[in-house]
Nucleic acid binder design. Structure first.
Lengths: 192, 192
DNA sequence: CCAAGACGGAACTGATCGGTACCATCGAGA
DNA sequence: TCTCGATGGTACCGATCAGTTCCGTCTTGG
């Protein structure tokens, strides 16, 4: 492998898919922006759909690693630690390149819920919920799974809102709701 | 107009765009499913983009009329009336044809935030927020606009979550959060 | 009754789509 | 040094894209 064509293809595809959408980006664009030849593309991937799936898998790993990092460096107390999600989202929303959630976008673009891409995207969200669930369980929350799903719903709502508004404000609003949610939730240690 | 070709075009386009996505549906599909000739299409619309915009305008009107109806028939008290949004969403999510929010989907598919379609979609959300804002103001809530934006964020979060899960459960979860939100919010009459 | 306009069907354009086949080149290991 | 695998470039495929043009038909209002 002279210059790792596969890696260049995946990173170019990931960027283009996120910036412009999966359907909007043709093979030609991926080739020209990555500098990879047409034949090399099909030596590494059977079809465009396989690139989409692999891009999503990569992004899933990167995204959750990023979330883990945000949680690790957060100075919040154990019972407030799940709010680190919204702290992180606020930063993401402020980025000029922000264009929503790649996984939500994929599920929207890929109408067929049985498609591999849709599955990978849906699984990503469940994995994020699992992270929140663990955090909430460790924080001593009684109904931690239901709470995790509510926080994830808030996060997704913030993402699509930020996509529309183009400002990080939605993260602050969602975090405000999340704070109330955690404050009114029952905890194992100190009952309400 | 023999059989109102324009109306048939718009209703076919609206259904197809929602079911399969805007980019995924070609002019050919719209023509064959509406039974309208190719020439007639371009007699009524300069381009496909114009159909997209007009479909969104129609849907915006229909959707808000539907919301107004749900609010009108709701038996909830004035301070709980905004929850009628989530009551309505629960019904929508249960429909087999449910495939998320046409406006969110449009903003995701149409990457360019300056495109006419994106604008119409964004404006729709602001109009819905205005409805919630009025409801909350009439319900006596102090910070009604911020509250309206939080409820709208919850609604959008529920929509994308329901799109992923394929069940109406997300509406119930979001409504649970909304109930807590309203209960802890300050009101003009009875301060907390 | 007849003319004007709205209509459906089909042929056609140039561009682009995803995907295949072939070829020359380059680089590293034997 | 030679060879083999990975690579980039290009020509090509059938299908489909949005959009244009022309024609025959049907409806309707004057």
């Amino acid at each position: 492998m002279a210059t790792n064509a596969k890696e260049r293809l995946l990173s170019a595809a990931e960027r283009l898919f996120y910036e412009e959408g999966i359907r909007a980006v043709g093979i030609e664009r991926i080739l020209s922006e990555s500098g990879v030849g047409r034949a090399s593309f099909y030596r590494h991937f059977p079809s465009k759909d396989d690139v989409v799936v692999e891009v999503l898998r990569r992004r899933d790993g990167m995204w959750r690693a990023w979330l883990d990092g945000r949680i690790a460096v957060s100075e919040r107390s154990p019972e407030e630690l799940p709010l680190a999600l919204f702290d992180g989202l606020a930063e993401r929303f402020a980025a000029a390149s922000f264009r929503g959630c790649a996984f939500i976008n994929t599920m929207v673009e890929t109408a067929d819920p049985d498609s591999p891409a849709h599955h990978v995207a849906a699984e990503h969200k469940e994995k994020v919920i699992a992270v929140l669930d663990r955090l909430l369980a460790e924080g001593g929350y009684r109904d931690h799974e239901a709470l995790a799903r509510q926080l994830a719903l808030l996060g997704d709502g913030a993402i699509v809102t930020a996509l529309r508004e183009g400002t990080p404000e939605a993260a602050v609003r969602a975090r405000g709701v999340a704070e109330i949610l955690l404050r009114t939730a029952e905890r194992e240690t100190a009952r309400v």
